[in-house]
Computed example of a mutant assay.
Amino acid sequence: MANFASTTQGGDAIAADDASSSRKHAARTSAKPSSRSSSGAGSTRRRNRPGPRQRLLESATRLFTTEGIRVIGIDRILRDADVAKASLYSLFGSKDNLVVAYIEELDQDWRRRWEEMCADRPKPEDRILAFFDMAIADEPKENFRGSHFQNAASEYPRPETDSEHRIRQAALAHRSWCRDTMADLLTEKFGYASRTLADQLIVFLDGGIAGSKMSRTVSPLETSRELAKQLLYTAPMMYTI
């Protein structure tokens, strides 16, 4: 009987040890992520990751707007975007073409944000003043770097190649759109076209942005907005065209 009890107790101890080992193994198994799960998460991240073109443009925008265009080399952009050189040349052909695409992307974003700001501004004079209001809002957020379009054009004062000419043209296209939009709004307000008045307004905007960049305050832009407002509300109905 004593031997039977001893054997029984020993068997119970072994069973308890086995149960304990099973629980520990189960705990380790549940705590450790499966390779399949990790692989799935990685695949999801890769699927949600922007494509090479978008990554290149995002990196170019971040680097060009904060440090300048000419000082940033191709290798720096490729590292930041995590894109192979072959992809850059396949998508854009050259750094200069990437610069053109970067400026055009900035221009489209600027127009979109201007349209959004004007959504609740039915009067043409208020939509003109939105150009100044956008600059006043942007400059502090951009660390008073000035107009990215002016900055890009100033880096190519004497373009020597076709691609450098296209860079300047892309920057000037934004300014031309601003001026032409102002001219159309002036026609809507006064009933006649006045390129001269539009030229004065764009010079106010150019000067306000440049002044804010120099002084690192929005005061010059606020002054230029006030000058634009006075012009808009005091221009004679038969302004010389």
Score class of each variant (00 low, 15 high):
Thr181His: 09
Gln108Trp: 13
Gln150Met: 09
Leu186Val: 06
Asp206Trp: 11
Lys189Phe: 10
Ala119Arg: 08
Ile74Asn: 07
Cys178Ile: 14
Ala135Tyr: 06
Asp96Ser: 15
Val83Ser: 03
Ser20Gln: 08
Ile136Val: 14
Ala60Cys: 03
Trp177Asp: 00
Leu63Gln: 06
Ala101Asn: 03
Ser215Gln: 10
Ser215Arg: 07
Thr181Gln: 11
Ala86His: 15
Ala81Tyr: 00
Leu56Pro: 02
Met134Ile: 10
Glu142Gly: 00
Arg112Thr: 08
Gly68Thr: 06
Ala119Asp: 09
Ile128Asn: 04
Arg23Ala: 14
Glu125Leu: 13
Thr65Tyr: 01
Gln169Tyr: 04
Lys24Ser: 15
Thr29Arg: 15
Asp184Lys: 00
Arg79Ile: 05
Pro157Asn: 06
Arg113Ser: 02
Thr29Cys: 03
Asp107Gln: 08
Asn48Ala: 08
Trp114Cys: 00
Lys189His: 15
Glu188Tyr: 04
Ser215Pro: 02
Gln169Ile: 04
Asp12Trp: 11
Arg36Leu: 15
Tyr233Met: 11
Ala170Leu: 12
Thr7Tyr: 06
Phe144Glu: 01
Asp133Ala: 14
Asp107Trp: 12
Arg111Trp: 07
Glu142Lys: 11
Ile69Met: 05
Ser30Met: 13
Arg216Cys: 01
Phe204Gly: 03
Met237Asp: 05
Ala13Arg: 01
Tyr156Asp: 03
Ser163Asn: 07
Pro140Ser: 00
Glu105Thr: 15
Asp96Leu: 10
Asn97Ser: 14
Ser90Phe: 15
Ala198Arg: 09
Ala13Val: 04
Asp199Arg: 15
Asp18Val: 13
Lys189Asn: 10
Asp126Ala: 12
Arg70Gln: 13
Leu91Asp: 06
Leu172Gln: 05
Glu164Asn: 02
Leu232Ile: 11
Lys229Gly: 09
Ser194Pro: 11
Lys229Ala: 15
Ile202Trp: 05
Pro50Asp: 02
Arg225Cys: 05
Arg62Lys: 08
Leu106Ser: 00
Pro220Cys: 04
Val99Pro: 00
Ser38Ile: 14
Lys95Phe: 04
Arg127Thr: 03
Arg45Glu: 12
Leu57Phe: 04
Ala193Asn: 09
Gly42Cys: 04
Gly211Phe: 08
Gln169Gly: 01
Leu231Pro: 01
Ile128His: 03
Asp12Ile: 14
Ala2Arg: 09
Ala86Asn: 12
Asp107Ile: 01
Lys141Cys: 02
His148Phe: 15
Asn3Arg: 12
Ser176Leu: 13
Leu186Trp: 09
Glu160Trp: 12
Tyr156Gly: 02
Arg195Asp: 06
Leu63Ser: 05
Lys85Asn: 07
Leu91His: 05
Gly40Asn: 11
Asp109Ile: 11
Arg28Asp: 09
Ile74Gln: 13
Leu106Pro: 00
Lys32Pro: 01
Lys24Gly: 13
Ala60Asp: 02
Leu231Val: 11
Ala135Asn: 06
Glu125Thr: 10
Glu58Met: 07
Leu78Thr: 10
Arg46Gln: 13
Lys95Met: 06
Trp114Glu: 01
Ile136Lys: 02
Leu231His: 06
Ser38Cys: 11
Met214Glu: 00
Ala170Gly: 05
Glu188His: 05
Tyr233Arg: 11
Ala235Tyr: 13
Ser20Phe: 06
Leu129Trp: 12
Phe4Asn: 12
Asp109Tyr: 10
Ala171Arg: 09
Cys118Tyr: 08
Glu222Phe: 07
Ala137Phe: 04
Asp180His: 12
Asn151Ala: 14
